[in-house]
Write a protein that binds this DNA or RNA. Structure first.
Lengths: 173, 173
DNA sequence: GACGAATACTCGCATATGCCACTATTTTCA
DNA sequence: TGAAAATAGTGGCATATGCGAGTATTCGTC
């Protein structure tokens, strides 16, 4: 806790050591550690990306679409580890701004496919140098080998295999 | 991309290899890797925590408050790497539900301090076993040594020092 | 061929997050 | 001592995310 000034001053009833001792594992939460680091990196990358008008999250969507061709929403949500209705929500401003279009799948009337528009592609191309700058700064501070190792860990955690193992499901289906 | 069926079929104009080749670094984005892993872990932990009625993000807030005594909102936002107005928003449902209270700082009329209520403490205590279960599952799948190493990396990335180094600011102030 | 199960999405509701303008207060400086 | 700068928070607006109910469609089984 930065700049401790507080807190035994008539409010918290217990001394600091007793409170800290009551929650010994508080600093060990993997979910909390991931969220904090993600907020930090999102804030830093977004400040570098700001001139191109895309947030990191939006750029990530566009890149996945660009690489996949015309993925279905289901494919895209699985690839991004996003709830499908969350993906639907996240695509709306991009569709409104003309960066993507949603078209019905030819074979399956339930499905929609996501298409990057020429404007979306131009916007994505315009973001490349800024993204590369953010990425270079990260790797300069953190180390390129360490950054690659981190991404390997994160990819493993994000994988469907990890989710199945965590939930104790039989993975041999 | 799971289950590739798509996408050269009259929609995407370019062959797969050309598109993938156009964005060679797409899979290397540190921000994207962090967000994907964080979504996965949040989803998994939240499903374990669901019975206690707290989400992982709310539990994280309560734990920080519990450990700190009665931190100011500024202290809490810095500790959690959260924008201060975001923290304000995130505290509202917790205040509404009676888990925390906000009280004016005695010395600084601008500041408010966050207090865990007895109900909040009870809720937090009730979440302990579920959290420990989620945490044990993560470490069983990922490995305890690997999990500790990951948290160390994430803590470094979340640190103010990392942010200063990334932004190229002089850290010797 | 019909029906039930499964799938793909949308919508509504809610939380999570961040930026900016604003107000109130404190701190710093001349 | 007063004014300007800095700080602490709020409110509004927006994006980011997830759950559950609902509709439409497809698939599998009998």
């Amino acid at each position: 806790m930065v700049g401790r000034k507080n807190s035994s001053a008539g409010l918290g009833c217990e001394p600091d050591a007793a409170r800290a001792g009551a929650y010994p594992n508080a600093g060990r939460c993997n979910g909390t550690a991931l969220r904090k680091a993600t907020r930090r990196v999102s804030q830093l990358y977004d400040s570098v990306l700001a001139p191109c008008g895309l947030k990191g999250t939006q750029r990530s969507l566009l890149i996945h679409i660009a690489r996949a061709g015309t993925p279905t929403m289901g494919e895209l949500s699985a690839a991004l580890v996003l709830d499908r209705s969350a993906l639907g929500h996240n695509l709306k401003p991009l569709e409104r701004d003309g960066l993507v279009a949603l078209v019905p799948d030819e074979q399956d009337k339930r499905s929609r496919r996501v298409v990057l528009t020429p404007l979306g592609k131009a916007k994505l191309d315009a973001s490349m140098a800024l993204w590369a700058q953010a990425q270079a700064r990260f790797e300069a501070v953190f180390g390129p080998a360490e950054a690659a190792a981190l991404r390997a860990s994160l990819e493993r955690i994000a994988s469907p295999e990890f989710a199945e193992a965590f939930s104790g499901r039989d993975t041999s289906k």
